[in-house]
């Protein structure tokens, strides 16, 4: 049995949510899953769960989400989908921490405040979006490996162009061209993906 492939990463959350009404549309479920799982898992990690606990928290959160969604418990008018999932994730994560016996610290620790969790969520979302965008660039047949490497070195790792040129076997000018071209592609992709992530009204 092959697992369903997520559908296009830039389909908006609204489109995916609509498709999710149809229980046979596993690809849409896989897309929602692929979109939110790393974010929830990352958030759980930041809140102090270890790897397997965080994995479990993500699983529970998404299972609870899909159950509630199919039961019509999600009211779009009352808030964004990501806020809603964040709410489920928050309860799940705090529940796990409590069970681990950390109940006493929950009230006092600033980490668990709503505001902090929301900003942590945003950072995790940005991370996920960036990772997804980079991965799309890598899979893009129009972008060759050397160009991508030149961009990574100069744009993301801060390596001087001359050094990058010698590492990639390119001229310095070619490196600059690569950096500029890929930066623009990446910027567009990040914007599209962020919009797709948040567009749910």
């Amino acid at each position: 049995m092959t697992s369903p492939r997520p559908s296009s990463p830039t389909r908006t959350t609204t489109q995916l949510l609509d498709a999710l009404r149809d229980p046979r549309d596993e690809a849409s479920w896989a897309s929602i899953d692929a979109r939110f799982r790393p974010v929830v898992q990352g958030l759980a990690g930041r809140m102090g769960l270890n790897y397997s606990e965080a994995e479990e928290a993500a699983q529970q959160t998404l299972a609870e989400f899909v159950r509630a969604y199919r039961d019509n418990r999600y009211d779009r008018a009352s808030g964004r989908l990501s806020s809603w999932i964040l709410g489920i994730a928050r309860n799940t994560i705090l529940g796990q921490l409590k069970r681990r016996g950390a109940a006493e610290i929950l009230g006092e620790d600033e980490r668990f405040s709503d505001a902090h969790m929301r900003s942590a969520w945003t950072e995790e979302r940005d991370l996920a979006v960036l990772g997804e965008a980079l991965s799309m660039l890598r899979d893009d047949s129009g972008v060759d490996d050397r160009t991508l490497l030149a961009f990574e070195l100069t744009g993301l790792r801060g390596v001087p162009a001359t050094e990058a040129a010698s590492q990639c076997g390119m001229t310095v000018d070619q490196v600059y061209v690569a950096k500029s071209r890929i930066t623009r592609r990446l910027r567009d992709l990040v914007r599209e993906l962020t919009d797709a992530f948040e567009e749910d009204r």
Binding site: D126, L130, L134, E152, L156, R157, L186, R187
Partner: peptide, 23 residues
Amino acid sequence: GAKQDAAFLTRVRPLASAVLAPE
């Protein structure tokens, strides 16, 4: 355009270390 690119890279560079494969 180059200034916008630079600003974008300044914003994502701190995140990049978490998603980029190690050298």
